[in-house]
Amino acid sequence: MIVIDTFVGVTEAFLVGSIYLGLHRKIMARIQRRPGPPIIQELLHTLKFLFKEGYAPITSAEFLYWMVPVFNVIVWSSAVTIAAVYRGNLLPFFAFYAAYKVLSHGAGVSSGSTYTKIGGVRHAIMPAGELALACSLISAYFVTGHMDVSGILAWEKTHGALWRYIPFSTLAFFTLLWIDSPHSPLDPSKGYDIVEGYLTEYPGFLRSLMYTSEAIKYFCELWVFQAVFLGISDPVVHMFVMGGLTAILATLCALTPILTPYQAVGVHVTVAGLMFLDTLVPKPWI
């Protein structure tokens, strides 16, 4: 049932990711005393754009420009399949995350617009996304002896949730979720000074593909965080905790002003550096 499992898993990731991105937007709006759009707005947006004209600007590197959205969907569908559907190895997840950064940079530079170029470059220089991801997964490996999700979940069934053993690595991974959530103060690649960053020049169904991959990415990152650090394996509990995490992330994003790229990188590196405290700080609760 590999093919059907993959189809169902990717579709579920897209639908749930879209709904939770809508919830994120709604909570942010309510905190800022705006009514905000309906929760299904992100999903409706993606479907609406799917039937709008997509075209390349005259200055674009056309092949790259057309292929980046497609590869984005491939990258995050692969990540969600390996991590959430098959509960497999997390090293490809890290590789896919790095590939996503390369693709975002490609999306920025391929259109030929200086605004998207700045957005793409800013996104690529946000280093601690990968740094935090790599270090926290390595921390998980050192504690559990497993790099695959099913092995880590089995270990957590016996020993308890991993966040109690490596709280600073958990914080680092949570920071990654914060960096990647919409309107994050730690990700200035979509700051208002450069409009929508690397997405600015993507119209129509190409933008729909970008939104699709964003929804799958959101689901995938939250799912991996919950499975690896919180020890959650039940799908229903996953859904509830995902909602709670979305509420926390939306609150953080709504209340924090956007940082400059240098400040954001400083925060990333500091949080990633805190992970060394996992080896130094005693944990009496274990």
Partner: peptide, 13 residues
């Protein structure tokens, strides 16, 4: 399967 998913969305769009 993953290539089919990406191609399907792109082709429909």
């Amino acid at each position: 399967t993953i290539l089919a998913i990406a191609y399907t969305i792109f082709a429909i769009g």
